[in-house]
């Protein structure tokens, strides 16, 4: 992770802390229960969430992103109480404030690189594509080494390139938070390093809060804080489980 990726100079984002209190979430018709008594994430920090499969890492990310709503408790992101927002408010908040990166990249197969990067502007009317946004998208693509692949469809890109397109898509709305769910899970070691460098570079230079869900313990070095879900997930008998994730500072 010695490489440093230069990103376009933009206005620094509003640094937003995250607070979770008395959070309870249960999937319908499932024994799974996620219960968090208290969790605070500092603005602009680099946080890794680790833990075994099915422990609730992705669920926590989805809750913080407003993709699903908790049955109980409070999720506060900056001055926004995400847990009390309506569906539309959560969507608008998500698309304008949060950049999402997924393990399978989740690019749209019929859109080229540029169109995939600009996808957020096409699917939500609350953000409008301006000429500056388009210029910013182009500069992001160039900085990510995708300048000559702007018209290519995803199937003509390598896996590393696809993930870089996905990161560009996450950054194009200039979000304050980056949520990445297993962003290196499908990558070879070289691309893994490059993707993490990019994400850390964004965090360092733009001040965006970076939260990465991973089960890959080899990539934890660059994170400021690690939240371990090992003992955190609560099953059908919540009374027997602890309600606070084990944490470590690095």
């Amino acid at each position: 992770m010695n490489q440093k990726t230069e990103l376009p100079i933009t206005a620094r984002r509003l640094m937003i802390p995250i607070h979770l209190e008395q959070l309870e979430f249960r999937y319908p018709r499932s024994d799974f229960l996620l219960k968090i008594d208290q969790l605070a994430i500092e603005a602009g920090s680099r946080v890794a969430i680790v833990g075994p499969s099915g422990s609730g890492k992705t669920t926590l990310l989805n809750l913080m992103a407003g993709i699903c709503s908790p049955q109980q408790g409070r999720i506060q992101i900056g001055s926004h109480a995400v847990s009390t927002m309506s569906d539309a408010e959560r969507r608008n908040f998500r698309i304008s404030r949060i950049g999402m990166v997924f393990q399978q990249f989740e690019l749209v197969d019929y859109l080229n690189t540029e169109e995939n990067i600009l996808l957020p502007f096409a699917i939500n009317q609350s953000i409008r594509l301006s000429p500056e946004d388009r210029q910013y998208a182009e500069s992001l693509a160039v900085q990510m080494g995708l300048g000559d692949k702007i018209r290519r469809l995803p199937h003509r890109l390598s896996q590393g390139e696809q993930q870089r397109v996905a990161i560009c898509r996450a950054l194009v709305t200039r979000p304050s938070l980056i949520f990445a769910d297993e962003p290196t899970g499908n990558l070879d070691p070289k691309n893994k390093t490059r993707i993490l460098d990019i994400l850390f570079g964004v965090n360092r230079e733009e001040g965006q809060t970076l939260i990465v869900v991973t089960h890959d313990t080899q990539i934890l070095d660059g994170f400021e804080r690690i939240i371990d879900f090992q003992d955190f997930t609560v099953d059908a008998n919540p009374a027997s489980q602890p309600d606070r994730p084990r944490e470590s500072q690095s």
């Binding site: 969507r91 997924f102 996808l119 898509r169």
Partner: peptide
């Protein structure tokens, strides 16, 4: 694809 769009903020 639709799930991704939803996660990104599409209604």
């Amino acid at each position: 694809e639709m799930q991704t769009m939803f996660k990104l903020g599409c209604s």
